[in-house]
């Protein structure tokens, strides 16, 4: 995938604290930033982050972003049951929902959205990428939407992974490829 698709994106990522929800959101924001676009990233903050649910809103657009708070996402990435219940019906018609089916048992009966189920947590464990289910889901998002080119993906990873943890760039790349090829 070498040309990124420049549609407007209003994304919600949601799951448990500790699954890397905010990090995955940051990665998406960097895809937009490095593509020369307007972006915003808004985390939930507060008591829910301590072992409870965490979510964040990411907007990517060619125009100045109004509300950074996403209430009707055209993309949803969801990594636990409470978040699935909370957000699946908020997805805008024709939107995309990417669900970690290792952790979410439910299947949506909505016919007006594209639901993709990826056993990301299981895939991460089986491939020696424990804790990178979030990145596998980002890989699936790239496959479904063409949101970032290969060049931008690598640049974004190099930007957000601190120099001291440089070795993680390759494992993150591997996780993204796993998602893109699933």
């Amino acid at each position: 995938m070498n040309n990124e698709n420049r549609e407007n994106r209003e994304i919600i990522l949601a799951g448990f604290g500790g699954q890397g929800i905010l990090f995955a959101g940051k990665m998406l924001a960097y895809f937009g930033l490095l593509g020369g676009r307007e972006v915003s990233w808004l985390p939930s903050y507060g008591p829910e982050m301590r072992g409870g649910t965490a979510n964040c809103s990411v907007c990517i657009s060619d125009k100045p972003i109004g509300s950074p708070l996403v209430t009707e996402p055209n993309i949803l990435i969801v990594m636990n049951n409470p978040s699935y219940d909370k957000f699946i019906n908020a997805v805008a018609p024709d939107g995309l929902a990417i669900v970690d089916s290792s952790l979410v048992g439910a299947r949506s009966d909505r016919k007006d959205i594209n639901c993709v189920y990826v056993p990301a947590t299981q895939m991460a464990d089986e491939n020696g990428l424990r804790g990178m289910a979030n990145i596998i889901l980002v890989g699936m998002l790239i496959k479904e939407t063409g949101i970032a080119s290969a060049e931008i993906i690598r640049k974004a990873l190099e930007k957000i992974i601190p120099a001291a943890k440089k070795h993680l760039v390759e494992s993150n790349m591997k996780a993204i490829e796993l998602g893109m090829n699933s």
Binding site: A29, L33, E38, V39, S40, W41, L42, Y45, I65, P68
Partner: peptide, 10 residues
């Protein structure tokens, strides 16, 4: 406010 403080933008 908390929204401006916590959000990231370019």
């Amino acid at each position: 406010d908390g929204l401006l403080g916590q959000m990231m933008e370019p």
